[in-house]
Design a protein around this nucleic acid. Sequence first.
DNA 1: TCTTTCACATACGCCACGTATGTAAGTGGC
DNA 2: GCCACTTACATACGTGGCGTATGTGAAAGA
Lengths: 203, 203
Amino acid sequence: MKIAHKSRSEMIAETRGKLIAAARRAFATVGYANASMDDFTAEAGLTRGALYHHFGDKKGLFEAVVAQIDREMSLRLNAISAKARTRWQGFVDENIAYVEMALEPEIQRIVLRDGPAVLGDPAQWPNANACILSITSNLVALKEEGVIRDIDPEAMARLISGASLYAAQWIAISEDPGATSTKAVKAFRTLMEGLLVDNKSAA
Amino acid sequence: MKIAHKSRSEMIAETRGKLIAAARRAFATVGYANASMDDFTAEAGLTRGALYHHFGDKKGLFEAVVAQIDREMSLRLNAISAKARTRWQGFVDENIAYVEMALEPEIQRIVLRDGPAVLGDPAQWPNANACILSITSNLVALKEEGVIRDIDPEAMARLISGASLYAAQWIAISEDPGATSTKAVKAFRTLMEGLLVDNKSAA
DNA sequence: TCTTTCACATACGCCACGTATGTAAGTGGC
DNA sequence: GCCACTTACATACGTGGCGTATGTGAAAGA
């Protein structure tokens, strides 16, 4: 702390950071299965020894990468919903933002595609639960406020996040993501408005 | 055809069938990555030579397995919707059946979990499109009949299948699948009824 | 300063995939 | 009914990537 070169704990954090960053790039570009540990540890100026020391195995490092991306996603989502005027608006905005985030290739590949195959069901990940919980708590509050119908909040949260996720994937593979995104968001709004007690959107 | 031992084409079909069956078991139990080609080809009384001859590589065989499961799912879904009285009823039933099918470990593991990681986005698979198309065409008809609101059918089909899929995964990992399934189906119905023009379900 | 611990690197073995090659059986032409 | 050719596999081999066991130098504590 007093001298120029960093302290030991700082060095460790830096090493972990470099490994996670390099792995993240590799996983995002070539996928988990095709990412060679020798390659991306070398890219970070290290060897597999460091990886096994800090993360146990390839899967452990992958978990760390997913956790990092998850945290970033949570922060971004919270920032979105915090801006909204009403709770309902924040709820809808947050879900739409989730759809749009899922368009990013890195998230698509690491979190949505390889993640479930390597780590098992996303619903069991810590953050997936956090995300579901966020939607759930919103639904609970909206129900108490009498804004939406009498539904099981957790069940509905699952359905909604699934719909968002799939919408995102659809947009991601479409030829005109902009146009598709517009359609998806519109449909999503309709679906959500179906939950409102006082639904004015009926033509 | 006339003699006891089968014709050549029959032998080939049998070989392909045995390979697909053995691989299907292996993929379902230990997953794609952990399934050793030597092991499950031996289990089928063959070697990797046969596999490479017929399917090119491990991924090719996996595609064939997924295609087989996909066909089975399509048949089952069509049978369900064919039974229903009204189009709306058939539509809802089919989606709920899809949820329940996704509870089966084999489908869960091969189609929903490993499939996307190995073959890429499910929306690009032939059958995924078939499934989406089925929902889409139902929505188009329901819209024409004035049963549901003015929505983009394809977009809504994507959202719905995503919701079904996620609901299924939720049920699959829950401790009490029966109870969870009840909640999920109820929430799903509510979500679908939000699409109805004449929605009586408002409390 | 000496020892202990820790953060990595190095070296090794193993397993699994893909490919190149071999072989026996089937198929068509005459 | 023989021969040329193709087909449907099996066998053998090389390679690459993972995990582990071991080594080493530097930092932390006494």
